[in-house]
Simulated scan of single mutants.
Amino acid sequence: MSDGGFLEIQPTELKFPFELKKQSSCSMQLINKTDHFVAFKVKTTNPKKYCVRPNTGMVLPRSTCDVTVTMQAQKEAPPDMQCKDKFLLQSVIAEHGATTKDITSEMFNKEPGKVVDEFKLRVVYVPAGPPSPVHEESEEGSSPRSSTFENGTQSLQTLDSVSRSNEPSKEKSPEALAMISKLTEEKNSAIQLNQKLRQELDLLRKERGMHHGGFSVTFVVLVGLLGALIGYIIKKS
């Protein structure tokens, strides 16, 4: 901070974040702590390299003025990042009520009995700051990664639901169920009849053993027909 002369200057050095092939800007604030209108003018040793806005102006009493200096993109870095460029800020007391339009180059000429305050500022290059870190947490406190995982889970659940809906239905129609029930009943009846015939056959065999007799041809034929009928019913079911 410079508090000498008519204007207080903050800061006293122009610090530019330096990065090849990129423009860089910095600013300074001019503070008028007097009760006078103060006109200022900014000069530089390398006018093609820098752009100053505003390069001339009027600072009202007890007020401030911001000046922005932009450095054009540089193709090469200077040795040891040292810059020899300089800026000169000139200030002079102006008439009361003067405006920027009233400023002329002659106002800053040094003449006997006229005070022209001058302040030199040097240029400093500083390394460009690293990119700002990515915030891992969202406003609701959940990270994008967890949100992605949750979305993936929902997608899998949706896909599973669609796959299930596309599977062929395993339910059978009422007609098919009725046919199966009927065939099952016929099968059970045939099995019971077969068991009953076997019991009667065993009983007849026992009686034959007791009486040493034999079966009639009619009985044998009847048993054969019943066996064939039972076999047909079982195969059909």
Rank of each mutant, 00 (worst) to 15 (best):
Q192K: 14
T153C: 08
L183S: 07
R164S: 12
S173P: 03
R198W: 08
S146E: 14
P61Q: 02
E171S: 10
L89M: 04
Y125I: 10
P17E: 04
K114F: 01
P54K: 06
S91L: 08
S237W: 00
K48S: 11
L203Y: 14
E111G: 02
L156D: 09
I230D: 03
P127E: 11
V126D: 01
A190E: 01
D80N: 14
E207Y: 08
T158K: 12
V223C: 09
I9G: 00
M107V: 09
G113F: 03
G4P: 01
E171Y: 05
G129E: 15
S143G: 03
E185Y: 04
P127R: 13
E136W: 11
P144C: 05
V124M: 02
V92A: 12
S25F: 00
L60Y: 04
K48T: 13
A228Q: 11
S138E: 11
L183E: 07
H36L: 13
F108Y: 08
K206I: 11
M28D: 00
K86M: 07
M58H: 02
L183W: 05
E171A: 12
K49F: 02
S146G: 00
L20R: 06
V220A: 06
N166L: 15
G97N: 07
L193G: 01
N32P: 00
E76K: 08
Q29P: 00
P79Y: 05
N55G: 10
H96R: 15
S161F: 06
A178F: 06
V67S: 00
F149P: 00
K21G: 08
K110D: 03
F18P: 00
E167Q: 14
D66C: 09
S143F: 02
L193V: 10
G97K: 04
P11V: 09
K196H: 06
T148E: 14
H96G: 08
S132N: 09
N151C: 12
D80S: 15
V42I: 15
T12Y: 03
S142G: 09
K114W: 05
L14V: 09
T158P: 00
V223D: 03
S27K: 05
E171F: 01
M71R: 08
S147K: 14
Y125K: 03
A176Y: 13
S147Q: 13
V52T: 15
K235R: 15
E167M: 11
P168M: 11
C51S: 14
K187I: 07
F219Y: 12
G5Y: 07
H36Y: 12
V124C: 02
I103H: 00
K172N: 05
P127W: 07
F149N: 15
A73T: 08
M210F: 10
E200T: 10
N194V: 02
E200W: 12
G129W: 10
D202C: 09
M71T: 03
V221I: 14
K49H: 07
N194M: 07
S169F: 02
H96S: 15
S143L: 08
L30E: 05
V42S: 00
F87S: 02
F6K: 01
G113I: 07
L183C: 04
E136P: 04
Q154A: 12
Q82M: 13
E13S: 07
R164V: 12
S165T: 11
K170P: 01
L226N: 09
V38H: 03
L183M: 09
L121T: 01
S105L: 11
R205F: 06
R208Q: 13
L88R: 10
T153D: 07
P17Q: 04
P61H: 02
F16S: 05
E19Q: 13
